[in-house]
Computed example of a mutant assay.
Amino acid sequence: MLLAIILVILIAIALVLLLGKRQRYTYDDDGIVIHGSVNKKIFYRDMLEARKISWDSLGPTMKFGLRMPGTLYGSFHFHELGEVVVSVNDDRKMVFIRTRDAHYIISPEDPAAFIKHAGH
């Protein structure tokens, strides 16, 4: 039993380290590309809203994903926001993005600069 618990903890740590290294964002003139868990380009023109948010204020329910201290990946449901694809390395820098087709939460290095660049 103890061995199983240790194995689960080691696998969780390995996943966080692996996803954290793969997770990154690149920017260009027309959008942001989320690399890693999502692999999606979100065009600035498609962003209806981009704002800084706090995880604790949302009351999420995980549908499928991984949540470790400071790291969040997967599909979540929020009472206030609905279904959201979450790809976060730093839960202190979270930005909610709403497009016509989907909702995302990411953690750019400088949330204020990202929101300004996105035009919101």
Rank of each mutant, 00 (worst) to 15 (best):
K93P: 09
V84R: 13
G36A: 04
K41L: 02
S87E: 06
G65P: 14
D90M: 10
E83T: 13
I9R: 02
V38F: 14
I106T: 05
I34H: 01
T61M: 05
E80Y: 08
I6Y: 02
D29R: 04
T26E: 02
S57K: 13
I13V: 15
F43S: 06
L3A: 03
Y73G: 03
L48D: 02
P111G: 12
V95R: 05
I13A: 08
L7E: 01
R22Y: 10
G65I: 12
L18E: 02
Y25C: 05
I97G: 00
R24Q: 06
L3S: 02
E109D: 03
S75E: 13
Y73R: 07
D56L: 14
S57A: 13
Y73P: 04
I53M: 15
K40A: 04
G36N: 09
G65E: 12
A14W: 02
G31N: 02
V95F: 12
K63I: 09
P60A: 10
L3M: 07
D56H: 10
D110E: 00
A118T: 00
R24M: 03
K116L: 00
M62S: 07
L17D: 06
D46V: 10
F96R: 05
I11V: 11
T99E: 12
G59A: 06
F78W: 11
T26N: 00
A118W: 01
R51C: 15
I34P: 02
S54A: 14
G119E: 03
K116E: 03
I32L: 03
A113P: 01
L10N: 07
P69R: 11
I97T: 07
L2N: 00
L81H: 08
W55T: 12
L2T: 05
S54R: 10
G74D: 14
E80N: 12
R22A: 05
I11S: 06
A14V: 01
I115Q: 02
R100P: 04
A112Y: 04
A14N: 11
A50Y: 06
T71L: 11
L19S: 04
L66V: 15
E49A: 09
V38R: 09
D56G: 11
R92L: 14
S57V: 13
L18C: 05
M62W: 09
M1P: 07
G65D: 08
G70W: 12
M47N: 02
L15T: 04
I42V: 13
Y25Q: 14
S37V: 12
D29E: 10
K21H: 05
F78V: 15
W55G: 14
S37D: 06
A112D: 10
I34D: 00
H120T: 06
V8R: 01
Y44W: 04
K93D: 10
Y73W: 08
